Amino acid sequence: MSNPLPPGAPELATPVPSPCISLCKMNRDTGYCEGCLRTIDEIIAWSKADDAYKRGVWAEIRRREQLIDFGHDQ
């Protein structure tokens, strides 16, 4: 049986899965969790949010991934 979702695209699933990877540490400079790249407000709202909201958060996470320097070049 094939997976109908492209690899690495959890935001397309229904229900939309949480991006949490159990590395919960808020970064003071960015305001994002270092594990999932969500803001504290996004984390708090997640459990009661609908899939449209969650997909919007995933879109923001994807954008943030492109903008943040993770320090891998050091």
Rank of each mutant, 00 (worst) to 15 (best):
P4A: 08
L5W: 15
P6L: 07
P6Y: 03
P6G: 06
P6T: 02
P7I: 09
P7N: 11
G8L: 10
G8C: 11
G8S: 06
A9D: 12
L12C: 13
L12D: 14
A13I: 05
A13H: 12
T14P: 02
P15H: 02
V16C: 05
V16T: 07
V16K: 04
P17Q: 04
S18E: 13
P19R: 03
P19C: 08
P19W: 04
C20Y: 10
I21S: 14
L23C: 10
L23E: 11
C24D: 07
C24V: 03
K25Y: 08
K25E: 13
M26G: 05
R28A: 14
R28P: 06
D29N: 12
D29F: 12
T30S: 14
G31C: 06
Y32G: 04
E34H: 07
C36R: 09
R38L: 01
R38I: 01
T39E: 04
I40K: 08
D41E: 12
I43E: 11
A45W: 01
K48Y: 12
A49R: 04
A49V: 08
D50P: 07
D51L: 00
D51P: 00
D51R: 00
D51V: 00
A52P: 10
Y53M: 06
K54D: 00
K54C: 00
K54N: 00
G56Q: 07
V57C: 08
W58E: 02
I61P: 00
I61Q: 01
R62W: 13
R64N: 15
R64K: 14
R64D: 07
E65M: 12
E65R: 14
I68G: 06
D69T: 04
F70S: 10
G71S: 15
Q74K: 07
Q74N: 03
